[in-house]
Amino acid sequence: MNNWQILWQARDQFWSGFLSTMTIFGVSISAAFVIGCVMLYLLEGSRSRTTILLRIFIDGMRMLPFLILAYLLYYGLPSLGIRLNAWWSGVGALAAYHGCYFAEIFRGTRLTFPPGQVEAAKAHGFTKGKMFLRLILPQIIMQTRPLLGNQLIYALKDTAFLVIITVQELTAAANSLSGTYFIPTEAFIVVIGCYWAVSIVMEVIIKQCGRFSTKRGFDNA
């Protein structure tokens, strides 16, 4: 039996690792997106203490290696009496970390948002919350689409770090198979293929969404 046949027989292990990775990715990136939007909303308006603290928090997170944050949540929080299992530590770390990146991407684009549109919204009786949700946020998302796509790929790759805090995901599956049968090259080639495949699918989807914004004059794809 050659190495590839061994891997084929262990396909269930890969498959469950893959599903686990996709679940972690899906849950954490959705949470990160919401966190990014909420942070953008909190950064609206004048410079208050909240906005300054939030900016410091966002920058602090962005300047932190992701693995350290995952370690901190998994190994550090129990000393504060908060015990999260590996899965939730991983998802929490991904959500918070990439949430801050999302917020920063949104914020950069928000700075160039035409103030006239905000005035028009005010003049038509919009309050802050509705204006944000209906007029500002949709445009910011359309405008930041390519950057968001990029960030999704980063987040996907970061899920691989979670093997170190014992989350049973795709990289963990490959790691365990390569250890058991001593076939690291083949095992990791399969994993690379999986990450590439998911990334390519995301790229295509994000590109397709571009039609939506091109029609509205947001970019020239």
Binding site: P114, G116, A120, K122, G125, T127, R216
Partner: peptide, 24 residues
């Protein structure tokens, strides 16, 4: 309050020099 102001503002309609349509 922001709400009350928005309500009274809605009694006026404004047309701007630079149109300010919502492009999306």
């Amino acid at each position: 309050s922001v709400k009350a102001l928005a309500r009274v503002r809605a009694k006026t309609g404004m047309v701007f020099q630079s149109f300010n349509l919502w492009p999306h």
